[in-house]
Design a protein around this nucleic acid. Structure first.
Lengths: 198, 198
DNA sequence: GTATTAGCGGAACGATGTTCCGCTTCTTCA
DNA sequence: TGAAGAAGCGGAACATCGTTCCGCTAATAC
C-alpha cells in the first residue's frame, strides 16, 4: 500500500475499463456522423441515441458539449493525418498525394458547421487550429516531399498554402455540387505537376 | 367605406398605438444595454425584465430573437450616423471628425458579441453589413469632406478604410484596456492631419 | 360614455445542456 | 472461481431558453 501511494504520485490515473473505451469509441463515431449531417449544433441526445449510449455516459466522458466537439475534431484530424503514411506505402508518390487530397477534401466537407464554432471566440476551441496545423502540415509535407523527389511535382510548395486553399474551395460553394471541391482539388494537384522537372 | 377599402390598398397598415411605441423604445434601449454587457446571447427574458415589459410584448414586436438583434443594431447605427451632422454643426471640422470617431469607437465597443452572430451565416443577419455601410459611410464621408475643405486633413482618404480599421482596432485587443481603441483611433485621425496642406 | 380591438403580461410548452443517483458490470484479489 | 469494491452506466429530473397562447387591459374612435 505504501508502494501504491508512492507510485500514485506520478502514475497515470489508471487505465479505463474496457467497456468504457468501447463507449467512447462509438460516441466519437456517432458524433462524427451526426455533426457531418446536422452540424455541430446537433443535440447531444441525438448523438447518445445513435451511439446506443445513455446521456449520463456522454457527460461522464465529455463533461461539456464542447469537449465532445473538440474530441471529434481531433480524432478526425488524426485519422486524416494517419492516412498519409499508409497511402505513401501503397501507392507511387503522385498517386498517394492525389488520393490523400481526396481524403482531405472529404474531411473538410464534414466540418462545415465547425467554422462557426471556430469563429465563435469560445475559449474551448482556441487550440483547434493549432492542432489542425501540427498534424496535417507534416502529413502533407511528407507526401509532397516524396512526389518532389520522384520528380512528379514541382518543388517549393508550402503545404499550408495547399491546406488552406482546399479548405477555402470546399467552403466557398455552399449548397453546390458536392464533387466540385474534389475536382478543384485535383486541379490544384495537376497544377503542381507543371514544371516538375525544373 | 368604399373610400376605406380603396384607401386600404396602398395605405400603411395603421399607426401604432402610443403605448406600443413607448414599449418598443424601452425594449431597444434595454436590449442595447444588455447586449453591450452580456453579448447578443443574452436571454430575451433579461431584456424584457430590464425594459419593464412582458415576454409576450417582446415577441409581439420582434417575432424572433434575431429580429430584436437586427433592430438594435440598426437603431444603434442610425444613432451613430445621426450624430455626424449634429457634431458638424456644433464644432469646427477637425474637432467634429475627432469627436465622431470617439462616438464610433464607443458604438463598436458595444458590438463585441455581434461579430459572432454576423459570421454565423444565419440569413437573418445578411443585410446588416450593407446597412452598416450605407449609413456610416456617408456620415463619415461628410465629416472628412468638411475637414479636407478646411485644410485640416489630407484629401483622398476612403471612409470605408477608416471604418474598417477602427473596427479592427477595437476587436483586436480583447479584454484589454478599454481606452486603447480610443487612443488608437485618435492616432489615426492625427495621421490624417499630416500633409493636410498638399 | 361605450364599443372595438390593439396590445399586454406571463403561464405553459418544447427543446436542450447538465446534474444526480440507484443500479450494473467490469476488475481485482484471494 | 467467486465475492467485494468501484468504475461506469442509463435515464429521470432540473434549469434555462426560445416561442406560443390566451384571457385581460386600456388606448382609440365615434
Amino acid at each position: 500500500m505504501k508502494k501504491q501511494i508512492i507510485a500514485a504520485k506520478d502514475s497515470q490515473p489508471r487505465p479505463k475499463r474496457a467497456d468504457a473505451q468501447r463507449k467512447v469509441g462509438s460516441l466519437l463515431k456517432a458524433a462524427t456522423e451526426v455533426f457531418a449531417e446536422s452540424g455541430v449544433d446537433a443535440p447531444v441526445r441525438e448523438i447518445a441515441e445513435r451511439a446506443g449510449v445513455g446521456l449520463g455516459t456522454v457527460y461522464r466522458h465529455f463533461p461539456q458539449r464542447s469537449d465532445l466537439i473538440v474530441a471529434v475534431f481531433q480524432s478526425n484530424v488524426d485519422a486524416c493525418a494517419d492516412t498519409a503514411p499508409v497511402l505513401a506505402d501503397k501507392h507511387p508518390p503522385l498517386k498517394a498525394l492525389s488520393l490523400w487530397m481526396e481524403r482531405y477534401v472529404d474531411f473538410i466537407a464534414t466540418k462545415r458547421g465547425l467554422c462557426k464554432a471556430l469563429y465563435s471566440g469560445d475559449a474551448a476551441y482556441k487550440a483547434l487550429p493549432e492542432y489542425f496545423n501540427s498534424r496535417l502540415r507534416p502529413a502533407l509535407m511528407s507526401l509532397l516531399d516524396g512526389a518532389v523527389e520522384a520528380k512528379a511535382v514541382r518543388p517549393g510548395t508550402d503545404p499550408n498554402d495547399l491546406l488552406v486553399a482546399v479548405a477555402n474551395l470546399c467552403n466557398a460553394g455552399y449548397g453546390r455540387d458536392p464533387q466540385h471541391a474534389r475536382r478543384m482539388a485535383k486541379l490544384l494537384v495537376d497544377g503542381l505537376r507543371y514544371r516538375a522537372e525544373d
